[in-house]
Amino acid sequence: MEIVFIRHGQTDVNKDNRLQGAKVDAELNDYGHEYARKAAKNFDESEFDVVYSSPMKRAVETAKIFTKGKKEINLDDRLLEFDFGDWDGMKMDEIGEKYPDVVDPWGKVNRDYVKYSKNGESYEDFDKRCGEFLDEMYRKYPDKKVLVVAHGRLIRMMAAHYLTNGDMDKIDTPDNSALTKFSVKGGIARLVYYNRVLA
Rank of each mutant, 00 (worst) to 15 (best):
R7Q: 04
H8G: 00
Q10I: 06
T11E: 06
D12H: 04
V13S: 12
N14C: 01
K15T: 06
D16S: 14
D16L: 09
N17T: 01
R18F: 05
G21P: 12
A22Y: 07
K23P: 01
D25H: 07
A26M: 06
D30F: 09
Y31F: 15
A36M: 09
A36L: 08
F43T: 05
F43D: 02
D44N: 15
E45I: 13
S46K: 15
E47T: 10
F48A: 05
D49K: 11
S54D: 06
P55S: 10
P55N: 04
K57V: 02
K64D: 12
K64T: 05
I65K: 11
I65N: 11
T67Y: 07
I73W: 14
R78V: 05
D86C: 10
D88K: 06
D88H: 07
G89S: 03
E94L: 10
G96R: 08
K98Y: 02
D101L: 07
P105Y: 13
K108E: 10
D112S: 11
Y113M: 09
K118Q: 03
E121F: 06
S122Y: 08
D127Q: 07
D127W: 03
E132I: 05
R139Y: 08
P142K: 02
V149H: 02
V149N: 05
A150I: 01
G152A: 13
G152P: 08
M157P: 01
A160C: 03
Y162I: 03
T164K: 13
D175M: 14
S177G: 14
A178R: 09
S183E: 15
I188R: 12
A189D: 05
Y194F: 12
R196L: 10
